[in-house]
C-alpha cells in the first residue's frame, strides 16, 4: 500500500523509492466522470431484484483498467509538459531489448539526453547494464507481477526525474501478453521480435502487435542460420495492425540501427513540439 496516494503497489519494488516524497501524479482518486447512481430497488427493472436487505443496483460503466488509465493519463501529461519522448519496449524474454538499448545509448548519448526504466520480475541486472553506459536507469521489480503498470512508472519518475526534452525508454517485463493492456503513458509501444522466435508471433500474440506503433525485427545477423521468413512475419504483423511500422536490425552487429535512430529522432521532435 502506497501511503502517499493510498493505492496498492502490490509487491512491486522500485529502486530508491520510499514513500516520504510527494506525488507528481496528483490526479488524486476522485473520478472525473460522474457515476450516476440508479436505485432499482423499488422497480421491476431487474429480475435479480433484491430480497430482504437494502440491496440496490449501481451503474458503473467503467473500464476495468480505468485506474491504470488514469495514472497513464497523468504520466502522459507530465511527459507532454516536459517534451519527453517515452517508448515502452515490449517483447518476449530475451529478444534483445537491453542489448538494443545499450547499443542505442552508446551511439546516441552524446546527442540526446536519455534515461531508462527497467522492468523485471527479479534482479537489477538490466538496470546495471544500462548504468554501465553512463546513463541513468532505475529498476522496478514486479515480483510476481508480469507487467509494469502506470502507477509504478509514476513513482519511478520521482526518483529518476528525466530531463526536459529527453528520451525515456521503459523496458517492460519480458512477456508478449499482459503489457499490451497496460498503458504507461508512453508515446508508442515498440514490439521487439527476434528472428529466432518464429515468424508466427504476431498472429499468436495479436494484442501486442496491435498495440505497438513500431515492430523491430532483431537479430537479423542470425537469418542465415534460422528459417525465418521476414516478409511473412511482416505480413502477419500488418494483418493485426495495418499501420504498424517495421524496422530490421541487429543490435549486436549494428546493421539497420541507423533507421531506428532516424525513427527515434523524428519522434523526439514530435514530442518536443507537444502532441
Amino acid at each position: 500500500m502506497c501511503t502517499v496516494c493510498g493505492c496498492s503497489e502490490g509487491e512491486a519494488r522500485i529502486e530508491g523509492h520510499d514513500h516520504g516524497h510527494t506525488h507528481h501524479h496528483e490526479q488524486g482518486h476522485g473520478h472525473s466522470h460522474a457515476e450516476p447512481l440508479h436505485d432499482y430497488s423499488q422497480g421491476p427493472a431487474h429480475a435479480h431484484a433484491p430480497g430482504l436487505s437494502q440491496a440496490r443496483m449501481v451503474q458503473i460503466e467503467q473500464d476495468i483498467l480505468g485506474k491504470n488509465n488514469e495514472y497513464a493519463a497523468a504520466n502522459r501529461r507530465w511527459f507532454a509538459e516536459r517534451g519527453i519522448l517515452v517508448l515502452n519496449l515490449v517483447s518476449s524474454p530475451g529478444s534483445g531489448k537491453t542489448t538494443l538499448l545499450t547499443r542505442t545509448i552508446t551511439d546516441l548519448k552524446q546527442a540526446l539526453e536519455l534515461a531508462v526504466i527497467e522492468g523485471d520480475q527479479q534482479t537489477t541486472f538490466d538496470a546495471e547494464r544500462i548504468r554501465d553506459t553512463g546513463v541513468k536507469a532505475l529498476q522496478i521489480n514486479t515480483g510476481k507481477g508480469c507487467h509494469l503498470d502506470a502507477h509504478m512508472v509514476g513513482h519511478a519518475l520521482e526518483s529518476l526525474s528525466p530531463g526536459d526534452g529527453s528520451v525515456l525508454f521503459i523496458e517492460n517485463v519480458g512477456n508478449l501478453v499482459c503489457p499490451a493492456a497496460f498503458d504507461l503513458g508512453e508515446a508508442h509501444k515498440v514490439a521487439i521480435l527476434s528472428v529466432t522466435e518464429g515468424e508466427d508471433k504476431p498472429l499468436k500474440y495479436p494484442d501486442m502487435f496491435h498495440a505497438a506503433g513500431l515492430m523491430i525485427l532483431n537479430k537479423i545477423d542470425l537469418l542465415p542460420y534460422v528459417s525465418f521468413d521476414a516478409e511473412k512475419c511482416i505480413g502477419y504483423a500488418r494483418r493485426v495492425n495495418p499501420g504498424i511500422k517495421v524496422l530490421q536490425v541487429s543490435a549486436t552487429t549494428g546493421e539497420g540501427m541507423d533507421d531506428w535512430y532516424c525513427w527515434l529522432r523524428a519522434n523526439r521532435q514530435l514530442a518536443a513540439i507537444g502532441s
Binding site: 437494502q54 440491496a55 449501481v58 451503474q59 476495468i64
Partner: peptide
C-alpha cells in the same frame, strides 16, 4: 479496423 469487441468494462453492481 476493429470498432468493437475489445471492451473490458464493469457495467453494474448489485450492492448493499
Amino acid at each position: 479496423q476493429v470498432t468493437g469487441g475489445d471492451e473490458m468494462r464493469i457495467k453494474e453492481l448489485e450492492v448493499e
